[in-house]
């Protein structure tokens, strides 16, 4: 399925293999198999996990240092749980790639990036209707928002910088 990040379209070099059996350099496994996949990972494979948005971030905590990618499902664009899970995984110290997977819309791209996602994986039909350039443009439509801790650009820190510069 089409994949994009803040720079535009991207090639997906992960192999989906729910039980982890696939012989590939980067294997995306189901949550139930993540422990086994990591434990039996003598072959130097990189392991990622694809989770439903009902899985608690804490349940992944023991594995986060060994995982290279977490893909969080968005069953619909209106279901925003994934944003909070991403935020919590970053709080827990996850440094790997965070992927949002599902029928998001371009107008949510900035939110996804701000919550800690790196990339979005879209169903074919969605990607066909909403070309990559719309996503890149939508991500830049609001230059600064008001929340601290959601990406570098925020108005509160900008005001603080202006205050300090004025002193």
């Amino acid at each position: 399925m089409p994949l994009l990040d803040r720079n535009g379209a991207k090639t997906d070099d992960w192999t989906l293999s729910p039980d982890g059996a696939a012989d590939a350099p980067r294997v995306l496994v189901a949550f139930d198999h993540v422990q086994n996949a990591l434990a039996g990972n003598g072959r130097g494979r990189r392991i990622g996990v694809a989770i439903a948005n009902t899985i608690k971030a804490e349940a992944l905590a023991p594995f986060l240092t060994d995982l290279d990618l977490v893909s969080i499902a968005f069953p619909s664009y209106g279901d925003g749980r994934g944003f909070s899970i991403a935020k919590q995984l970053r709080h827990l110290g996850f440094k790997g790639t965070l992927r949002a997977s599902g029928p998001l819309i371009a107008d949510q791209f900035a939110y996804a990036l701000a919550c800690g996602f790196d990339e979005v994986e879209l169903p074919e039909a969605q990607a066909a209707r909403q070309p990559v350039d719309q996503w890149v443009r939508a991500a830049a439509s609001i230059s600064k928002t008001y929340q601290r801790g959601f990406g570098a650009q925020n108005i509160l820190d900008a005001r603080r910088a202006a205050r300090l510069a004025g002193k």
Binding site: G78, G80, F83, A114, T145, Y146
Partner: peptide, 13 residues
Amino acid sequence: RQWSSLHPEFDYL
């Protein structure tokens, strides 16, 4: 008002 405007995490509650 400011904090809640276009909050990245809380716009799809």
